[in-house]
């Protein structure tokens, strides 16, 4: 059973990995790269917001820390991209720890915690927009210089595989947590914090571990964004859009489930591409359709896409839903 829990992850990853071998559409690859970056950010959110039940509205904070750490280290100090990547992930973890230390110690839960994450992300956005170090409002532009050592790739397929590798690591981490004592503690904190404490769980420490890990993973997504687009500004890095993307995907896919963020992101982004065909001459129509479908999904498929699966294909759902 220990290994078999990882089989769905391997199957899904393998299926995504062969896409570039079967298809040759760069537009498809580009769509997948962006979806995988969002998936990774959402995986970070899912550990904190899904498994541990601490809803965050401000994961842009971690995404932006990842973006800017990687970009600034390369831009100002010429640090190697991979080293910058590691440092950015560490910075994401540190940001998570600091935010968690401040807010969890103050006993913030529920909406209060959600709002403070939003406030920190906005604060960082304003600072990044004003500081010379971050390139101010003009943002930072990295030199286009494809090569493995620069973490830039000529072909979309290579970058797809890189992003997929990170998502795979994210999946493995999530799965490992789900089957671990730590995971059980997180769930206990989510279900009833006071009861968990009574059972001897060190609630603060468990939450701090979760938010640090969450920050690190979402920061990694930020680095991928920078390496892919080679450009970052305050509204991209710390903007509300990524906070929403990171939370939307797990909620749609299946909150707290290992495959939730992946399934959610691809469902949402696939939907977004599909509704684009409704666009026609009048702007906005496609996003209206998107919104209606989103509300419909929530109304008729509680528990997300995986919840739907559970209703109609319980056996398959049991196998992939952890």
């Amino acid at each position: 059973m220990r290994f078999s829990g990882y089989i769905p992850i391997l199957v899904v990853t393998a299926a995504l990995a062969v896409v570039p071998l079967v298809f040759s559409s760069n537009s498809l690859f580009n769509f997948m790269v962006m979806s995988l970056i969002i998936t990774l950010a959402a995986q970070g959110w899912n550990i904190l917001g899904g498994v541990a039940g601490q809803t965050s509205f401000g994961h842009a904070l971690f995404f932006g820390v990842g973006c800017y750490t990687a970009a600034m280290l390369q831009f100002h100090f010429g640090v190697n991209a991979w080293l910058a990547f590691l440092l950015a992930v560490a910075a994401g973890a540190a940001a998570g720890f600091i935010l968690g230390f401040l807010s969890f110690r103050a006993g913030l839960r529920g909406s209060y915690f959600a709002l403070i994450t939003l406030a920190f992300a906005e604060l960082m956005r304003i600072l990044a927009n004003a500081s010379d170090w971050t390139g101010g409002a003009a943002g930072l532009l990295l030199k286009l210089n494809p090569g493995f050592s620069n973490m830039q790739f000529e072909s979309r397929a290579s970058f797809l595989w890189l992003a997929l590798a990170f998502v795979f690591i994210g999946l493995v981490i999530s799965r490992a947590i789900a089957g671990s004592r730590f995971g059980a503690q997180l769930v206990a904190v989510r279900e009833n914090e006071d009861a968990a404490r009574a059972l001897g769980v060190d609630v603060l420490s468990v939450k701090l571990k979760a938010i640090s890990l969450s920050g690190a993973i979402t920061a990694a997504a930020g680095v991928l964004y920078v390496q892919n687009f080679l450009y970052i500004d305050a509204n991209i890095g710390f903007g509300v859009w990524i906070s929403i993307e990171a939370l939307l995907a797990p909620l749609v896919g299946g909150r707290g489930l290992v495959l939730g963020p992946l399934i959610g992101t691809f469902t949402l982004h696939g939907l977004g591409e599909l509704t684009k065909s409704f666009a026609g001459r009048i702007p906005g129509i496609d996003l209206m359709v998107f919104a209606v479908v989103l509300i419909g999904v929530v109304a008729f498929a509680s528990g997300g896409v995986l919840g739907l699966l559970r209703r109609f294909a319980p056996r398959l759902a049991r196998r992939i839903a952890v």
Binding site: L287, A291, L294, I295
Partner: peptide, 9 residues
């Protein structure tokens, strides 16, 4: 999700 969807709509 629903209020988010409403706002997009």
């Amino acid at each position: 999700l629903i209020t988010l969807g409403l706002s997009i709509f």
